[in-house]
Computed example of a mutant assay.
Amino acid sequence: MITFEESLKQMQLDNFNGAVSMFEQALQTVVDSQDIVKQKYAAAAFDVSVNSLKSWVKQGCPEIRLESGMVLYSKKAIREWLLQYQK
């Protein structure tokens, strides 16, 4: 038989897990809505590896190189570049 304390503990755990899930979804929404991102996030947005993204750049995919050496990517620009090859 489940005690009141065990039931309460399970309810608190369920509430906590629900809150964590909502937080993760909100964070993912923010990340997805950003257009200018670092290499890792650009690759993830297109479900490819970082090496594939680097290969795309060699083929003409646009990238943003800052004076500091940091490389950023516009998901919109990559999407437009990819659509050029749509048949």
Rank of each mutant, 00 (worst) to 15 (best):
L66D: 05
Y73V: 05
L66V: 01
L83A: 14
L83F: 09
L83N: 15
Y85K: 10
S74F: 02
L53C: 04
W56E: 08
E80I: 03
K75I: 08
Q84G: 12
I64P: 01
R79E: 13
V57M: 05
K75E: 09
L72W: 05
K54C: 10
M70G: 10
E80F: 02
Y73C: 09
W81C: 10
V57Q: 03
E63F: 07
L66Y: 10
K75A: 10
K54P: 00
G60Y: 07
W81A: 10
G60T: 05
S74L: 02
P62R: 06
Q86H: 12
S55W: 07
G69A: 01
E63M: 13
S74G: 06
W56K: 07
I64V: 13
K87S: 13
E80Q: 13
C61G: 03
K87E: 11
L66A: 11
W56A: 06
E67K: 14
Q59G: 03
M70F: 11
W56C: 09
E63W: 00
L66F: 12
V71P: 02
E63G: 04
Q84F: 04
Y85P: 00
V57P: 02
Q86S: 13
W56H: 06
S55C: 05
V57W: 03
Q59A: 14
Y73M: 04
M70Y: 13
Q86T: 12
E63T: 06
W81S: 10
Q59M: 11
R65F: 02
L66E: 14
L72I: 01
M70P: 00
L72D: 02
